[in-house]
Design a protein around this nucleic acid. Structure first.
Lengths: 208, 208
DNA sequence: CTCATGCCTGTCAGTTTGTGCCATGTCGGC
DNA sequence: GCCGACATGGCACAAACTGACAGGCATGAG
């Protein structure tokens, strides 16, 4: 009946709860220095039962996904807001560093990311959100640079750009964030974009 | 005492057993059309107890890794055997298609890969093995093309190449292997290598 | 105000996953 | 024949999940 306007509100609430649970979970993870905390403990900290936890997350490890999605949405928003005639590389660098307080991480964030990078099950969640980002990235690129006509060519550049950021962040987090993330990202983006431009612009494109 | 020559033999046996368990597991997965088979069932099919299963695989999903590692080793071996003066793109394409029977998959392989691509926990195992491949790939590239001096620049091209193959295979498997994998791979490699060459060869490199 | 409805949550019981501990069987060397 | 190294199995148990049912709490109808 009134199933047209409800979902928005209800889903909004659920989204917030999931974010709250995620925050509590990583607080515990960081405090412990590992991710072995039990679902029961996380649920208790979030003020819910463990059964409810599983209503919001299919498996325990999914608990961190809302946090990654938050960053991801930041990036997408920054891309959408960027002027269309700005330098592409700088636009991308700016988007990916937009939720950093001048290029640095808080000690908490640093410890959190280190846990995520070193624990395979959780690293996967980061990758999954990155995969979702690829779709938005492809959309963004489609309006900025010429791409081939084959379906694969429309998504490959976006995919490579996102993967480049992954590699850069992996390196950066492993090196304890000692280097300048801005420079690293810029280098990564340049490599990918140089290849894309050389392939799709200079020689005859074989797509439609 | 004689702990110098034994491990080789013992470890060889264990390796073979793991491969055998992996084969039985995917037989069941493919027959069922999903990956929900219980550890007990897999262990029984492989003729071992579930306790022994967990001695060889830390978590259930690790069971498919030996199969991916097998392909990975194929690729590495093909790269090592390739003539040093051959065309780089063709060498790479050849390495990645070396364990395909003229560019095609058996129905069994097709169903297996489709399961792996669509089930996140298993897709991760493929990614993990790809990560291991990156190290070998970086080694291979180091002798073929000039790379920057920064640690990140020594690994980024290899990483991007491997990720490109991931994207291509994802696309190919999703499209039910209808297209020519050779062409797809060639395109992917060209994009990445064009970027690498443009960045590290043409302008002044800023590394050592 | 009361009742019906829909949705979220908690409780409880049960299955599956994963681990520590100890006993058994096998193999090669003494 | 005895002994140490090691792979395996059985058992008990913690933790991760799931299905079924019941209670709470809104919202809208009468």
């Amino acid at each position: 009946m009134l199933s047209r306007e409800r979902p928005s509100l209800t889903e909004r609430r659920a989204e917030e709860l999931r974010l709250e649970i995620a925050r509590k979970a990583v607080e515990i993870f960081v405090a412990d220095g590992d991710t072995s905390a039990t679902v029961e403990r996380i649920a208790e900290a979030a003020g819910i039962s463990s059964r409810t936890f599983y209503r919001h997350f299919a498996v325990k490890e999914d608990v961190v996904r809302p946090l990654f999605r938050l960053s991801s949405r930041h990036v997408i928003a920054a891309l959408a807001d960027a002027p269309r005639d700005g330098d592409l590389v700088e636009t991308l660098v700016g988007a990916w560093t937009s939720d950093l307080h001048d290029g640095a991480l808080t000690p908490f964030e640093r410890r959190f990311l280190k846990l995520m990078v070193t624990t395979p099950q959780y690293r996967l969640r980061w990758m999954e959100v990155d995969d979702e980002l690829c779709a938005a990235m492809a959309e963004f690129l489609r309006e900025r640079i010429p791409l081939g006509g084959h379906p694969l060519h429309r998504t490959l550049p976006a995919y490579l750009l996102v993967q480049a950021t992954r590699h850069v962040f992996d390196h950066w987090v492993s090196a304890d964030s000692a280097e300048d993330i801005t420079d690293l990202l810029r280098d990564g983006f340049r490599v990918v974009l140089a290849g894309v431009e050389a392939t799709y612009r200079a020689p005859a494109a074989e797509g439609t």
